[in-house]
Design a protein around this nucleic acid. Structure first.
Lengths: 237, 237
DNA sequence: CCGCGGATCAACCGATCGGTGGATCCGCGA
DNA sequence: TCGCGGATCCACCGATCGGTTGATCCGCGG
């Protein structure tokens, strides 16, 4: 790993002054993915001097959210952009790491993850992400997104953009606090009667709540409701 | 079984004849992961001449299961090992692709995926996988696994091996493959009748299986069964 | 003020589920 | 060879659930 990154700094005779490389911090718990991004970003079609074609330089890596935050807080090495996965195994997740990184400075954070569920996208945007890309994107898209995010522009994968538009046009009906409470108990496997006792309400009320939950989640039984609620991150785990 | 794997063909004049590289077919729907594996396997600590230290050569890649099967059937380029992800987006999944590849010849298939639930492991082993590794494994482990699998040895991640051992020693009653299958469908919210149709068995059989599942998991209804199965990593969330 | 939505409750009915008690078939190992 | 466990199936019953059609109460905002 002693490659000379930074050919740009020795362009004494170059007619076109090359732009400084974009310094990136990789955050992913999978060594395979980090290696892939490193390789993919290294072989960037660097066109020195052309704006929007800066080289990309991976100057640091982190396998956990905590490590990423520590690196950013330390400020060494300096980075221009954080490339962050959302699923980081144990410890804090990518959204929480993004939130903390945003709290310490003006680092743009580009999310690069596998899933494009509403819950994931919303929490990421809420946490202050500068962009949201999917891992199955072709290299060119990822390149573009890195440069866009580093330049302060929002970088959204087409699928993600479409999903956000869809939510604005047709917002999903959200569960009331009481209904969420019901679903949480439901997930533990309680019967209607047991839930009624737990919440000091009648069984009839429980059934009414559940029917509303089914309608809002677009399902027709309790198992599907729990699964859907999990998928939408309405309940944890 | 008697494949001439090649170290014998050392007809060169070199004092330490280098073993032929292991030719690998990568199957993963994520370009990032493919790039990562390519880089990771390329920078293998190739120690020519030492058995078990052959170089690894990625000679082909596929983004879908169908494409992988097509490549293997065509037989060009020749490969010694297939490195397969289980989650392949649309189309057939990694387990089904493995099954079809095993059907056409003696290619060892090494699964390299993210999750280590019973359901994933069981279907992969059933499909004829020669090994099961996790993507968060360090490069050395992946290297070793590739070489082991190519040499006809079984390559299991420690977590996976432990899980399989646990199933054999069974301190707590473990679900049969069929029962795991049932719980997976159960988690999607299907009714008994729907599950019966899905599995081409009668509703009575479904109920029998479910009762066994309840007994083994120590629960008395389907929601609790799904939650418990998730907690025990029998199925994936 | 009045409407609206959320929370609460009741009666009712068909569908589904949980559980019992059987049964047959098959493969695998003692 | 025999037994055992897994997978398959059947009939039956009470319990529970999904869904409908009502209803009352209350707080909030136009």
């Amino acid at each position: 790993m002693f490659e000379c990154r930074g050919q740009q700094r020795m362009d004494s005779a170059a007619a076109l002054p090359s732009a400084p490389p974009i310094r990136v911090l990789l955050v992913d718990d999978h060594p395979v993915v980090r290696a892939g991004l490193r390789a993919m970003l290294a072989e960037a079609p660097a066109a020195p001097g052309l704006p929007g074609q800066e080289a990309v330089d991976v100057v640091a890596e982190a396998a956990t959210g905590e490590e990423a935050v520590r690196l950013v807080v330390r400020g060494e090495p300096q980075v221009d952009l954080v490339l962050m996965d959302l699923q980081l195994g144990d410890g804090i997740d990518g959204a929480e790491a993004t939130r903390r990184i945003r709290a310490v400075g003006e680092f743009p954070v580009l999310i690069l993850t596998t899933y494009d569920t509403d819950a994931d996208i919303l929490t990421a945007v809420e946490a202050g992400a500068a962009g949201y890309m999917l891992k199955d994107a072709p290299p060119e898209q990822i390149h573009r997104a890195v440069r866009d995010a580093a330049a302060g522009r929002t970088a959204l994968a087409p699928e993600v953009a479409a999903r956000l538009m869809g939510r604005i046009r047709e917002p999903l009906p959200s569960l009331s606090a009481r209904e969420v409470q019901l679903v949480e108990l439901l997930a533990t496997g309680l019967s209607n009667r047991a839930m009624a006792k737990e919440l000091f309400i009648s069984e009839a009320t429980v059934k009414t709540h559940l029917i509303h939950v089914y309608q809002k989640l677009g399902v027709d039984n309790r198992v599907a409701a729990v699964t859907e609620a999990r998928a939408r991150r309405i309940i944890r785990s």
